[in-house]
């Protein structure tokens, strides 16, 4: 079993890095838990889910069972986590409504586009589109409210930046998932897009770690 796992990680070294790096924000989040804002606490849960997903996915891979449905499933949790992450931070009622109802509609769309044996372009694209819009709404609020003294010491700025980079970096890959990440895709091409996906995830995990680390300044960083 370990030999097989070793083979997988030798073939996809970026997967090992991406899966290991999830522990980083989780540890920082636990260390900084007391200073975390209400919404940001859900990010720890999000990374925990990602770790569980990757662990399960590795188990399936070792047993040569199709594990792509796990990524469709994790999109549900991603949408819910992003909704919870931002709904406590967004002050405008209409935007809050969009975050809530948007999450509900996206989850329904994810159910509609569900695929159990391959990556679903519908699920991955709709979830990314929703998350992208939520982050943009948050950025708009940051500029409108002007209540953060030092934006580089604001946890949600780093987390939002990481999210937006991950979403935009993987949006087209997921939009054309039927071509780029399907089971019929040529192995080299699949690896290229998959590695790209992992690089964007690593970026997001690093940005989130910074965000969680600077959360200690959040308390005194508001006007």
């Amino acid at each position: 079993m370990f030999y097989r796992l070793y083979d997988i990680f030798t073939e996809h070294p970026l997967d090992l890095i991406a899966e290991s790096i999830s522990i980083f924000p989780l540890i920082v989040g636990v260390v900084r838990y007391r200073s975390l804002r209400k919404g940001v606490k859900f990010l720890i849960l999000f990374f925990f889910i990602i770790i569980v997903r990757d662990f399960t996915s590795n188990l399936y891979a070792v047993r040569k069972v199709n594990n792509l449905f796990l990524y469709n499933l994790s999109a549900f949790f991603e949408v819910i986590s992003v909704c919870l992450l931002f709904r406590f931070e967004i002050t405008k009622k209409s935007t809050k409504k969009f975050v809530d109802y948007g999450a509900l509609i996206t989850v329904l769309l994810c159910v509609f586009f569900w695929r159990s044996n391959e990556l679903s372009a519908g699920i991955l694209t709709s979830s990314r589109l929703y998350e992208l819009l939520v982050v943009l709404f948050y950025f708009r609020q940051l500029i409108e409210d002007m209540n953060v003294k030092d934006i580089l010491k604001h946890s949600l700025f780093w987390i939002s930046s990481g999210l937006i980079l991950q979403f935009t970096g993987t949006f087209f890959v997921y939009l054309f998932a039927n071509y780029a990440l399907s089971i019929n895709t040529e192995s080299g091409l699949f690896n290229l897009y998959w590695n790209m996906n992992q690089i964007m995830y690593i970026t997001f995990a690093l940005f989130s770690s910074i965000g969680l680390w600077v959360s200690k300044y959040d308390k005194n960083n508001f006007l």
Binding site: L136, F139, L142, I143, M146, V148, K149, D150, I151, L152, F157, S161, I164, L165, F167, T168, G169, T170, F171, F172, V173, M196, L223
Partner: peptide
């Protein structure tokens, strides 16, 4: 992807710069 990434980076830099300047 390249276009979207450039736009994302632009948005992040713009938000950080504009917000800091205004504040």
């Amino acid at each position: 992807t390249a276009v979207l990434l450039v736009m994302a980076i632009f948005i992040i830099v713009f938000v950080a710069y504009y917000q800091q300047k205004q504040i």
